[in-house]
Nucleic acid binder design. Sequence first.
RNA 1: GGCUCGUUGGUGAAAUGGUUAACACAUUGCCCUCUCAAGGCAACAUUCAUGGGUUCAAAUCCCAUACGAGUCACCA
Length: 552
Amino acid sequence: MTNKELANLIFPNITKTIEDYEKLYPERNLKEGAKVVRFAPSPTGFMHIGNMMQAVINFVLAKSSGGVFYLRNEDTDQARTVDGAVDFIHHVLNYYHIKPDEYEYQGKIVGEYGPYIQSERIEIYHTFVKYLIEIGRAYPCFLTKEELEEIREYQTKSKKRIGIYGKYAKCRDMSPDEAAKRIKAGEKFVIRFKSMGDFNKKFVFEDLTQGKIEFPENDLDVPIMKSGDLLPTYHFAHLVDDHLMRTTHVVRGNEWMSSVPLHYELFKTFGYKMPKYIHTSLILKKDGDTIRKISKRKDPEALMFYYEEKGYPILAVIDAVLTIANSNFEEWRASNPDKPFYEFPFSPKKMSVSGALFDLDKLDNISKNYISKMTAENLYQEYKNWALKYNKEIDEIISKHKEDTIKFLNIEREVKKPRKDYENYAGIFDKSWYMYDEAWNRELNYNLGKVKDKDEIINIMEEYLNNYYNEDDSQEEWFNKIKELCLKMGYQSDMKIYKENPDNYKGSVADFTTVMRVVLTTLDMTPNLYDIMQILGKKRMLKRLEIFKENY
RNA sequence: GGCUCGUUGGUGAAAUGGUUAACACAUUGCCCUCUCAAGGCAACAUUCAUGGGUUCAAAUCCCAUACGAGUCACCA
């Protein structure tokens, strides 16, 4: 029996050849320098921040070069597939507006190079596997789990390199006749690649991020097709798909670096041009004193749910990711504050080689800046969208008081250096609840400062609200009146004079306004009091005073 | 254990043999100020994992050591 006959025995229904596919998926007709990239997650878990980084890098690479960004679903591990993972990937890409040009979802294929779901490409893989068997570069292997375990144990004990190579590749030189006999007898087998590499020889590989790296040649006979569902392994699918889909740049996690020798040999065997590689560093997490890989289980911020639930602006998350991904992004952003992120000239060489800690403080900072630059209307809309999804009570309140909410959000906003109060939408209500009467049915804790005497406080408030406050006053008039009353009641309105002789007064104008602020909001730290009073109006302020009388 | 990569402050990092080791975040202090936020001004690595070497000169080049990471599945 020949190899060809053996191949036919294993794949009796495969009639196409690899040349057929070559014609079916021709070279893409793109302008010089256009990059074809892919985001190829496996649905074995929910999309996390590391995936996000790759998606963003891919998107930037494609957009900035006039290329193609496609999404491929790597679902060859059927056993570990997680329900909802695929939906979530699409949701995230949509939510962040980093949509692929080509994809396949809910039965719809967009693009000429599909199917884009690996489990639907099984015939294609089989064609390529069949070809390898025909030319004698792949073979069925009948080693059982137990036998493999034995080999590994022996190798470990005798300090040999671990893996199926050389004399350990027991089925490598089996005659096609025997293989056929065992297949016909119903024995389980995988297809292994027959490596011709020499571990003692080296070759140089160039990674776009890390530069030239010297590797020993691959000499492992790695499985390329699994026994049960006959799906390809990652390595083989990578070869077939990235060749046929005409990928020019592969962005993938650093954990793939060590399979480069295998991939190199695979591409060489078929005579295909290898794509360029950008191996991204891991995202790490500081856990007490140790630094480790960020964990989906332990770190809520690892999963992309987190940022949406907290209500971080999408562009803030993307900027934070790019800040980690590329060391000169921050500088670029500083000089191009209004450009879309995908115009950033991403340079793989500027990627950090070692893993980076994902810094939530940095995200907060970026996010505060973004939110501070939104218009109040815009922020209200985003805030409402968030509340609609994650907090119905807040949604109800802010919808009912839309005008006041926008006014409040606008305090010290339309100025050159706006306030930076909020890092995400989830945090807004905690910093504005006191503006809503409905929210006052909580346990009240008045954060008073120097002046704590209840009668004195009531005295100040009544005097002020009844005889001084006028809602038509400008901020300057408002403050002059406060100073006037404050002097009259034994406080000092001039901070400099006060500081010279603090003992001569009941307090300063700051202590005086703190009383008002706390009665009206319970807090000693709020945005501009004048604006808050304007929004509240006299009637509600009097009501707040009543509440104070009852609760303090 | 084999292979590969890495190690600059609390964090992200710049510097690619040449005076005081950029910048940003965080932290702390001061100023401004009705509080806060913002802003302004400071402080924060006598030193670039450690030890040798090359050089007039090293965080930068070489060697060794230590430590860390990834990988070594019919998982991706």
